[in-house]
Computed example of a mutant assay.
Amino acid sequence: MHASSLLSRRQLLASAGLLAGASLLAPRTARAAAPDSSVYQLDATLTDQDGRAFAFESLRGTPLLVSMFYTSCDMVCPMIFETVHATLRALPEAERASARVLMVSFDPARDSVAVLRKTADQRHCDARWTLARADDATTRKFAAVFNVQYRRISNGEFNHSSQVVLLDRQGRIAARSGKLGPADPAMVKAVHAAFAQSA
């Protein structure tokens, strides 16, 4: 077979997505894949408090504090918000400005975009914070990845575990804490270490 015929066949297969090495025929523009140990392997689409849909993996690149909550909780969940605020306040100024927070609701039936927006305002969550919701199936997958247990009880509220998880720049779990209230010194130290790591 002539080289020109072989090239034409390779181009045809590549355009159809049937050639395993098709990416070699075009410039590589895709972002490098997350490490196998990264939770960003989870294919999840979330919607934030401003109604914007985004891929979970798009948060990769900076240390991220993650927790789960529901807005109608009047005891533990407000303490989670306060704990994250305290953790941010305990960081050096540059790290405090660059840190990001993701709070995912496990009550998407009630936690609409409007409710998330209202909660963000009430809890003094600035641009560093993303309050998010997803469909039930995605919410359950997200909870499983972060080892958050929850179940709805008869009065419509939830029993749930409470923790704050730190992801490093690549989405590897760097620390987790179940301490609520004042900033956990071990978590603050872990956030500082995560910022010290190269991107």
Rank of each mutant, 00 (worst) to 15 (best):
V104Y: 00
N147S: 14
V148A: 08
V84I: 15
V188G: 08
F69N: 08
L65T: 08
F146R: 13
R133N: 11
H85L: 03
V84C: 12
I153L: 05
F106R: 11
Y70Q: 04
R133I: 04
G181W: 00
R172L: 04
S98R: 15
Y70R: 06
E95R: 10
P108K: 00
D121K: 13
G156E: 01
F69T: 07
P63S: 07
A183F: 10
W129S: 13
S154I: 01
L65E: 05
F158E: 05
E82Q: 15
Q149H: 06
V66T: 03
V84P: 15
P63H: 04
D107T: 03
R172H: 04
R100D: 08
W129G: 10
R169G: 12
A120R: 09
V115F: 00
R100P: 09
L166M: 07
V76D: 00
I80N: 07
K141I: 03
I80M: 14
L102A: 13
V188R: 06
K118D: 15
V164W: 02
P185G: 08
V145R: 15
D111M: 03
P185Q: 03
I80H: 01
H124S: 12
A186L: 05
T138A: 13
F146H: 13
V188I: 05
F69V: 15
N159V: 12
F69D: 06
G171T: 09
M68N: 11
L102E: 08
G181D: 03
K179W: 02
C73T: 02
F106G: 11
C125R: 02
T71P: 00
Q122F: 04
